[in-house]
């Protein structure tokens, strides 16, 4: 690795399978995928329930959910930091500066995206299906799994949007994870650190991987959109 060009260095890091680099990538994926998994588990049924049921304050809940889609990662990080810090309500679990804390923070970021997009998708579909499903004897609760499955393509796009947000954010994981090498260092925090240290090769290598990942996610979302238009609509 004697080349002076950081771009060449970055490529050789990736191609040589540098363990430090791949450790960081592995942790990043582990944290973001876990967060997306938990957020989907809660957000899909929650969004569907908000779509189907009328209750006092529903408009407020929807507005809040939509607003939280733009929750700044550093604010999410700060909130989780305050809850998990020694003096906080969840301080006794000693989770601060662990990957678990990072998963919690990213779940908080992703959940509103998945829930809000699900709410919209399911509400549109319910509008279309309501009479037919009622005619066949389906109540609202029974309609939830039907609608979630029938909106599967749109909902996959929503989950991908959540994953895109989780994998690209730096503020939340930096605050609650602390960017500890080998423990809580992920792609985005490593890029921030290595750039400020002047190690552009590692930063650039991680940047390339991250860019590829985000491009792949968006390509998948696009293809799913095409598929749903041509086959299912």
């Amino acid at each position: 690795m004697n080349s002076h060009d950081p771009f060449t260095l970055a490529l050789s890091l990736i191609l040589s399978g540098d363990p430090g680099l791949f450790g960081i990538i592995h942790l990043s994926l582990q944290v973001s995928l876990s967060a997306v998994f938990v957020a989907s588990l809660i957000g899909l049924p929650l969004g569907a329930a908000i779509a189907l049921f009328r209750f006092p304050g529903r408009g407020l809940v929807i507005t809040l959910l939509n607003a939280l889609m733009g929750l700044p990662p550093v604010v999410a990080g700060l909130l989780v930091y305050l809850s998990l810090s020694r003096a906080g309500p969840l301080g006794q679990f000693g989770l601060l500066f662990t990957p678990t804390a990072m998963v919690i923070a990213q779940t908080l970021l992703v959940l509103p995206i998945i829930a809000a997009l699900t709410r919209q998708a399911i509400e549109d579909l319910w509008e279309e299906y309501r009479e037919q499903l009622q005619s066949m004897g389906s109540g609202r609760v029974r309609a939830i799994p039907t609608l979630l499955w029938d909106a599967r393509i749109t909902l996959t796009t929503a989950v991908l949007a959540g994953f895109g947000r989780a994998s690209a954010e730096v503020g939340a994981v930096l605050i609650v994870g602390g960017n500890i090498e080998g423990v809580t260092r992920v792609m985005t925090t490593a890029i921030a650190l290595e750039t400020s240290k002047g190690d552009l090769a590692l930063a650039l290598a991680l940047g390339l991987v991250l860019l590829t990942l985000v491009a792949a996610v968006n390509a998948t979302a696009y293809l799913l959109g095409q598929m749903s238009r041509s086959r299912m609509q």
């Binding site: 299906y129 029938d150 599967r152």
Partner: peptide, 18 residues
């Protein structure tokens, strides 16, 4: 109003609901 599923799944779903 047909579900976004196969033709036969549209019928089996109705049977399931009943």
């Amino acid at each position: 109003v047909l579900l976004r599923r196969s033709t036969i799944a549209n019928v089996t779903h109705a049977l399931a609901l009943n």
